[in-house]
Simulated scan of single mutants.
Amino acid sequence: MAKDNKFDKVINIKNRKARFEFEFIDTYVAGMVLKGTEIKSIRESKVSLTESFCIFLDGELYVRQMHIAPYSMAASYNHVAIRDRKLLLSKRELEKLETKSQEKGLTIIPVRIFINDRGMAKMEIALGRGKKSHDKRQDLKEKDAKREIRRMAFD
Score class of each variant (00 low, 15 high):
residue 35 K to T: 11
residue 134 H to K: 14
residue 145 A to Q: 11
residue 100 K to M: 15
residue 144 D to A: 11
residue 108 I to H: 06
residue 102 Q to D: 02
residue 65 Q to N: 13
residue 33 V to L: 05
residue 13 I to N: 05
residue 51 E to Y: 11
residue 110 P to E: 01
residue 114 F to P: 03
residue 4 D to F: 10
residue 109 I to G: 02
residue 81 A to R: 07
residue 54 C to D: 01
residue 21 E to F: 13
residue 86 K to A: 07
residue 80 V to E: 06
residue 147 R to V: 07
residue 67 H to I: 02
residue 31 G to D: 03
residue 93 E to R: 14
residue 112 R to C: 00
residue 65 Q to R: 05
residue 87 L to D: 03
residue 27 T to D: 11
residue 53 F to H: 11
residue 126 A to V: 01
residue 120 M to T: 07
residue 33 V to W: 03
residue 12 N to P: 00
residue 80 V to A: 04
residue 109 I to L: 10
residue 70 P to S: 11
residue 64 R to Q: 12
residue 116 N to Y: 02
residue 72 S to D: 10
residue 17 K to Q: 15
residue 99 T to L: 14
residue 58 D to I: 03
residue 68 I to L: 04
residue 132 K to I: 06
residue 113 I to H: 00
residue 83 R to Y: 04
residue 24 F to C: 07
residue 116 N to R: 02
residue 56 F to R: 00
residue 6 K to H: 10
residue 26 D to N: 04
residue 27 T to G: 00
residue 145 A to Y: 01
residue 37 T to Q: 12
residue 148 E to A: 12
residue 102 Q to L: 12
residue 125 I to W: 05
residue 25 I to M: 10
residue 90 S to H: 13
residue 46 K to G: 03
residue 4 D to V: 03
residue 73 M to L: 13
residue 110 P to D: 02
residue 74 A to W: 10
residue 35 K to Q: 06
residue 102 Q to P: 00
residue 31 G to Y: 06
residue 108 I to G: 03
residue 80 V to P: 00
residue 68 I to R: 04
residue 135 D to L: 01
residue 104 K to G: 02
residue 16 R to Q: 13
residue 98 E to V: 05
residue 52 S to K: 08
residue 144 D to C: 09
residue 78 N to L: 04
residue 138 Q to L: 10
residue 150 R to T: 11
residue 107 T to H: 11
residue 117 D to I: 11
residue 81 A to M: 08
residue 116 N to H: 00
residue 36 G to T: 03
residue 88 L to D: 14
residue 98 E to L: 04
residue 127 L to F: 11
residue 7 F to P: 06
residue 97 L to H: 04
residue 138 Q to P: 00
residue 123 M to N: 05
residue 40 K to A: 08
residue 69 A to H: 13
residue 119 G to M: 09
residue 110 P to W: 07
residue 18 A to E: 01
residue 26 D to M: 07
residue 31 G to V: 07
residue 124 E to Q: 11
residue 14 K to G: 01
residue 149 I to T: 15
residue 78 N to R: 06
residue 102 Q to T: 12
residue 41 S to N: 08
residue 45 S to Q: 13
residue 127 L to S: 07
residue 80 V to T: 09
residue 6 K to C: 05
residue 78 N to P: 00
residue 129 R to S: 13
residue 131 K to E: 02
residue 3 K to E: 08
residue 5 N to M: 10
residue 76 S to R: 04
residue 151 R to D: 07
residue 109 I to Q: 04
residue 89 L to A: 14
residue 83 R to T: 14
residue 59 G to H: 05
residue 52 S to H: 06
residue 90 S to F: 14
residue 6 K to G: 01
residue 136 K to E: 05
residue 121 A to G: 08
residue 69 A to D: 05
residue 52 S to G: 08
residue 93 E to M: 08
